[in-house]
Design a protein around this nucleic acid. Structure first.
Lengths: 159, 159
DNA sequence: TATTGTTATACTCTATAACTATA
DNA sequence: TATAGTTATAGAGTATAACAATA
């Protein structure tokens, strides 16, 4: 028999337990993601780049001439949303929309010299910040994590 | 000397390379996160729960009596945004806001029987789905990944 | 004076329909 | 007819200021 409380007053919680959620890998992925995103945003701010503009710039530098639709697919962004991203990069003269002679509907996205230079600097900064974030982990551990995450990525595309 | 192209026509990209981005652990965390979130959303849909309402419900079931401000801190959600989440759970009679005698400003969040039951079912479903997502990974690998992600979480709170 | 919950609001992100010009 | 890029718009998710009630 449990002793009844005087008024059924609600219990006071001193420490909030998230043990149940902690069982899930997804919970930790989300929390790590928040940290990484926050760090990345801070890292890119001096370059006046957001995560999406950074990703777009890197992909254009690595794949000069690609079409907006290709970039949208690669970034998993809807085409309408990509337009403003490209607008921003073009306005800053980091890339340019070049007419494609063989298909007058399409634009070939080309990085400018300034775009390639900013891209290189941003990548170096991101590398340095990520290294700090992963400082506690040995290279083989990192490889193992990437392998595991890639496995999860694959599972997603399977369905 | 490179042979100049006739009109400097932009190159055609057949396959978009994301090799540069793939170097970064954050890129893989983000992609895995997308898969996990998508799967989680699909898993919770039959229960009419979103990720935030699910997290809130689990935390209330595990910590009966906690205050909204405590829950907001635990979930890393702004207090104003938590209000609508709590409203939704209360409207569905999964939780209730109980008056706290010792502090008449605050509410103690309590799960109802229906809330605890739905929570249990949802947790079981999420467990099953996550198991499918991690099917290719051995338990020690999963432990290693969680350890690594926890390390990254800690780095974030350090700054 | 500070805190709890709340309202209103704004800003970003993301998603969809429909248009134009080409193919 | 289908596709590339675009426009407009709507819906999430998230963030801030300010208020009433209470500490």
């Amino acid at each position: 028999m449990t002793k009844p409380r005087q008024q059924d007053a609600p219990p006071v919680v001193e420490h909030v337990s998230d043990d149940t959620l902690r069982q899930f890998v997804g919970y930790h992925v989300k929390r790590a993601m928040n940290v990484i995103q926050g760090d990345l945003a801070k890292t890119l701010r001096p370059f006046d780049l957001r995560m999406v503009t950074y990703s777009a710039l890197v992909l254009i530098v690595d794949n000069p001439g690609l079409r907006q639709s290709q970039l949208a697919t690669a970034m998993d962004v809807e085409r309408p949303n990509l337009v403003v991203i490209i607008d921003e990069l073009e306005r800053r003269d980091l890339i340019l929309r070049e007419k494609v002679p063989t298909d007058r509907r399409a634009y070939a996205l080309m990085p400018t010299l300034a775009g390639r230079q900013l891209c290189d600097k941003a990548i170096a900064a991101v590398k340095a910040h990520e290294a700090r974030l992963l400082a506690g982990l040995a290279p083989p551990e990192i490889k193992e994590v990437v392998r595991a995450l890639s496995q999860i990525e694959l599972r997603g595309s399977e369905e």
